[in-house]
Structures are given as C-alpha cells and as structure tokens.
Amino acid sequence: MNRVLTVPRLQFVAWPSVVGWPWAILSLSFLINLAFFASMDGRDIEQTTGGLASIYVMMFIACINVITQDFPFAIGLGISRRSFYLGNVFSFGAQAVVYAGLLYLLAVIEEATGGWGVGLTFFGIPFLWVENPVLRFLGFAIPFLLLGFLGIAIALVFKRWGVNGMLTLSTATLVVIGGAVVLATWRGWWSAIGDWFADQSNAALLVGWPALFTLPLAVASYLIIRRATP
C-alpha cells in the first residue's frame, strides 16, 4: 500500500503541471468568456460556451504525460508496475472526485447568480444538465475517468509497442470509424442514429455510457502495463 501511495506523491511534486495548469486554463477560458459576454451589454444572444471542455482535455493530456514521463522514473525507483498502475488510478480518481465537486459547486453558483450577472452559462451547460444531484455530480466526474483511462491506454500502447503500435492503433481506429460512417450512409441509418441519441437521457449520455466505456479501458490498461517497457 505504501508503494501505491508513493506514486501520487511523486506526481504531485510537479503540482503546477498536474493541478495548476488545468485550472489556470479553465479560469482563463472562463474570464475571457465572462468579459466577452459582459461586453455584449444585454444583447439577445445565446450565451452558452463550451469552455468547460478545457479542463477535461487537460486531464486527458496529463494522464498521457504520467505514463510517458513518470512511468520510467517510478520503475527505476523499484516501484512495481501494479503499484504504479494502482497509484495512478487512485491519483486521478481522487482528482476526478475533487474536480467534479468544484465544478458542481461552480455550476450551482452560476445558476444562483443568473449566469454571473450576465446570463453566461459556462459550468452548467443546459443540454448536459442532469436534475438529480448525485447524477449531476457523476456527470462531471465520470467523463474525467473516461478521458483519464483513455489517455493512459494510448500512452501504454506507445510504451508497449512503440511507433508501430501507435500507427496500428490509429489505422484500426480510422478503419472502424470510417467503416461505420460508410455503412451508416449506405444503409441510411443516420436518421435512426439521430433518433437514438435524442431518446437518450442526459444521465445516460454523461454517466451511463461513459462509465460503460471506462471499464474496458481500465482493464486493457492494466493488462498492457504488465508488459510495458519503461
């Protein structure tokens, strides 16, 4: 257990890149949007922005960096692959919970202040809003876990199989997505696909499906790291 907890401590030595940059970029995005919409001086426009995505993108990048930069160092210190993996799960899982709690609080404040006094919707995006408080919290947290495990899995493919592994993964992804697009177009399924998404609840789109995809990514990452080269 001590080895597992050593991993988060190693990562948070460089806390500016782990915590500081994600929140600094999110804060900058928020302030720019706030200033922009305040300058509109009450004009009748749709004041909803996608700036919230910046912190999720930063989590994805941070998890890739953890594998590419910290993995060799941790193995060199005698930390096992299993301990390193579990330490990372604990670390970014805790971040996901804390970040989700802060985003939830900011969304509540945003709603209570009428969009920060200018009608800005930054944290509580309407089409992603979930009324149930628990599901709303999970709606912030689960996407963090999904992108975190996705970043770890991609970085581990590179560590395990190198450039050839990344090219193979990219090619397979392109073939699957491209093939799906061609098949849907050929069979005329786009209308049915659109109806299916429209029928899904916000909770399913933000919590259910992301959680379903997170589990196999977590399992695959654990299996790959057991044979990954630092």
Rank of each mutant, 00 (worst) to 15 (best):
V19R: 15
A211S: 10
F123A: 04
F73H: 06
T113Q: 12
G188I: 06
I61G: 02
R9T: 10
S17R: 14
W209G: 01
L120M: 13
L28G: 12
F90C: 13
G115Y: 14
D70H: 10
F12A: 12
S27A: 14
W116V: 01
S221C: 08
T171E: 04
L156A: 09
A155Q: 10
V97Q: 02
A192S: 15
I64F: 06
L212C: 08
G178A: 03
L169D: 05
I67C: 15
G42Y: 08
G20Y: 04
F137Q: 03
A35I: 10
S91Y: 09
A112W: 11
N88W: 09
G117E: 04
Q95D: 09
G50M: 09
L52C: 07
Q95Y: 15
I152D: 05
V18D: 04
S54C: 15
F60C: 06
C63F: 02
Y56G: 00
G87S: 13
L156S: 08
S201I: 02
A107Y: 12
A218E: 08
W116C: 10
V163H: 10
V207C: 02
F30R: 02
L120A: 11
I125V: 12
W189L: 08
A107F: 13
D70C: 12
L77Q: 13
Y85S: 10
S221M: 03
I225V: 13
V181Y: 09
A53F: 15
T121F: 03
A53D: 07
A184C: 01
A96S: 12
Y222M: 07
L146G: 03
G101N: 11
V134Y: 00
L150T: 14
T185S: 14
